[in-house]
């Protein structure tokens, strides 16, 4: 049995208009992983996901889901995947329970099993009370949860989520994070694409960054973040600065009298920075990273590529 939930080898996709969306991608996701796929718009994330779930035909390459080649046994490969697409893709005039139960039926669950399973996932996603409502009356957040319920109804081992929290308020986003963490803890492998980089940083163990149809980085989160050369801290000072300060090996940028930015190499220990500040008798009431670390790395990797191009 394969130890990979997903193996992608030399995957290429050239659309009819000649655009090469994927340029020979190689990617592996271990079973049980929480994997983040990041990239700017048009990088090829959705094309890759569409190929995995058979909505797009690949031009070249191999894709295996839990060791099953999608070209050799597509029904078995598809049974292992649950997909939450980026855009709402259900019939808004159908009832919530009907949408989820029908999906179970398409996967071969009998009417009784499908109904039971649909009710279970709707309860899990707090949509049970809405089961007899038409999908069109649901709020945006509920529609997102409906799509997750639908993807889970056949109990797939591999869940693919294409920007599942887009347009969702913070509270619901946090709830969904907890739910995804719970699913992952239960053993489901999760592939997540998101524009909220703090989401990927908080949830994912491995992250791949894709740009122009190529994987530009694919590592565990810690190694990936270690690629960052510098750290920038924003300090809110207790007392306003009377004059410009300088710290050895640290670039200081004074935003206003009570706010400074310190940029230093990532390898420099934080304790050393604290000592330098102490020596200059600078005390502060709050400190935070200027940007999300992953966001910084994301920009670095994608912009680097841009300058090469």
């Amino acid at each position: 049995m394969s130890s990979w939930a997903l193996e992608v080898r030399n995957l290429r996709k050239v659309y009819e208009n000649g655009r090469e969306a994927l340029k020979g991608i190689n990617l592996t996701i271990p079973i049980g992983d929480f994997f983040g796929l990041l990239g700017p718009n048009g990088a090829g994330k959705s094309t890759l996901i569409s190929i995995l779930v058979s909505l797009t035909r690949k031009t070249e390459g191999k894709v295996r889901i839990f060791g099953v080649d999608i070209d050799e046994d597509f029904p078995l490969a598809r049974k292992k995947i649950g997909i939450v697409p980026q855009e709402f893709n259900f019939n808004i005039f159908e009832k919530v329970l009907q949408i989820v139960a029908n999906q179970a039926g398409y996967y071969g669950l009998s009417y009784r099993q499908a109904k039971e399973r649909a009710e279970y996932v709707l309860q899990e996603l707090q949509l049970y009370e809405k089961r007899h409502e038409q999908a069109r009356v649901l709020s945006g957040g509920m529609k997102r949860r409906l799509m997750i319920a639908r993807a889970l109804v056949h109990d797939p081992a591999f869940l693919i989520l294409d920007e599942p929290t887009a347009g969702v308020d913070l509270e619901l986003r946090r709830q969904l994070w907890h739910y995804l963490e719970k699913l992952n803890a239960q053993g489901k492998t999760i592939l997540l694409t998101t524009h909220y980089l703090e989401e990927a940083e908080s949830l994912c163990r491995h992250i791949a960054i894709i740009r122009d149809g190529e994987v530009v980085a694919c590592k565990d989160k810690k190694s990936l973040l270690a690629m960052l050369d510098t750290t920038t801290l924003v300090l809110e000072l207790e007392r306003p600065l009377k004059r410009q300060i300088s710290l050895p090996g640290v670039s200081v940028n004074q935003i206003d009298a009570e706010t400074i930015e310190l940029t230093f190499p990532s390898r420099v220990p934080m304790s050393k920075i604290m000592k330098l500040l102490e020596r200059k008798q600078i005390s502060f009431c709050s400190v935070k990273n200027k940007t999300n670390r992953l966001e910084e790395l994301f920009l670095m990797l994608t912009q680097k590529e841009e300058s090469h191009g």
Partner: peptide
């Protein structure tokens, strides 16, 4: 209608032939 609303994808991602 299923194509337009993209709900046809419910069937296309499933194992049915």
């Amino acid at each position: 209608g299923a194509k337009f609303s993209r709900s046809i994808e419910e069937l296309l991602v499933s194992p049915m032939s």
